[in-house]
Amino acid sequence: MFLGFLCRNQASARTLGVVFFLPHLLPSAMSDVSQKLTTIAPLLPSYQLFHPLQSILLENGRAVDMTFDWIYLFLLGSLMLYLAYLLMKRRWLM
């Protein structure tokens, strides 16, 4: 939503989304393959979602054991929602 409010039309929002999300998704998905990506991936928000899901599905992990990941995602989502709200108010007044 935040990226969508930065753009004036759908095409530019989609392009900005690809440019923004591709570097965030690839290191998490490829972290098992490369040692460099394994060190970079935990710094990205997509890893905080990907790692608990992988642990639950493949390694019999429990969602209760991943409280840091869920809190991190909740805080980041709240921040992005707030920023989108501010942009929406600003764009609405224009």
Rank of each mutant, 00 (worst) to 15 (best):
D65M: 06
S46E: 03
A84Y: 04
E59V: 05
A84I: 11
L93M: 11
M88F: 10
N9G: 11
R90T: 07
S34A: 11
L87A: 11
A11C: 06
N60Y: 08
A29Q: 07
W92K: 12
F2D: 03
S31G: 05
L6P: 10
M66W: 01
K89Y: 03
W92G: 14
S55K: 02
A29C: 12
H24Y: 02
P45G: 05
V19Q: 05
V19E: 02
M1L: 04
I40G: 09
Q48I: 01
S55C: 08
W92P: 06
Y82F: 10
L57Q: 08
W70P: 08
S31R: 13
A13W: 00
A41G: 14
K89M: 13
L3M: 07
Q10R: 03
R62S: 15
S34E: 10
Y85C: 15
A84T: 13
L76R: 05
S28A: 13
G77N: 07
S55M: 01
T67Q: 04
L25H: 01
L37G: 14
F21A: 14
L37I: 02
G17P: 10
L16E: 01
S78C: 10
Q35R: 08
G17E: 00
K89E: 15
G4D: 03
S34F: 07
G77D: 13
M94C: 10
L16M: 09
V64W: 08
S55H: 00
P45R: 08
Q10N: 10
G77M: 03
K89S: 11
Y72G: 07
N60K: 01
L16N: 02
S28T: 06
V33P: 15
L81Y: 12
A11F: 12
Q35P: 02
G61E: 04
L6I: 06
S12G: 09
S78F: 01
R62K: 07
M66K: 06
E59Q: 07
A63F: 00
K89C: 15
L79I: 09
P27I: 12
V19L: 14
Y82C: 14
G4M: 05
L73P: 06
L22N: 02
A13D: 04
L43G: 12
K36G: 15
T38M: 08
F68R: 09
L86W: 10
P27G: 13
A29W: 01
S34H: 04
Q48E: 03
D65S: 09
A29E: 00
R14E: 03
P52F: 00
L3R: 00
N9I: 10
L6D: 02
L86H: 07
L73D: 09
M30P: 15
H24L: 14
Q54D: 15
F21Q: 02
G17W: 04
S31P: 01
L37D: 13
L83R: 00
N9V: 11
R62P: 15
A84V: 10
L76P: 01
L76V: 07
S78N: 03
G4E: 06
F74Y: 05
T67L: 11
F74W: 07
A13G: 07
P27V: 14
L49H: 01
L53W: 00
D32R: 10
Y47I: 00
L25I: 14
Y72E: 00
R90E: 14
R62E: 13
P27Q: 02
V19S: 10
A84K: 04
T15C: 12
L43Q: 10
